[in-house]
Design a protein around this nucleic acid. Structure first.
Length: 62
DNA sequence: TAGGCCATCTGGTCCT
DNA sequence: AGGACCAGATGGCCTA
């Protein structure tokens, strides 16, 4: 049934939208040093990881 | 015009 | 059964 597929597509679209919202929030808290353009999804994850590591180091030696 | 990034559709598979 | 999650395919848009 095509109706079911269409509904499933809509759900998937909403699911992806919420995932992108999460990426957006992550971009807000992770410092994008310099770079004027917004980080790609991949870059965002990478930055988050290095940022967390940096903060961890900071706390560790204190 | 090629490469990167992305949104969407789709058909499996897993979970409730 | 039906929804959530996932990964592959495809096409659009933008920039070097």
């Amino acid at each position: 049934m095509k109706k079911r597929r269409t509904a499933a597509n809509a759900r998937e679209r909403r699911r992806m939208n919420s995932l992108n919202d999460a990426f957006e929030k992550l971009r807000e808290v992770v410092p994008s040093l310099g770079s004027d353009r917004k980080l790609s999804k991949f870059e965002t994850l990478q930055m988050a990881q290095t940022y967390i590591n940096a903060l961890h180091e900071l706390v560790k030696h204190h």
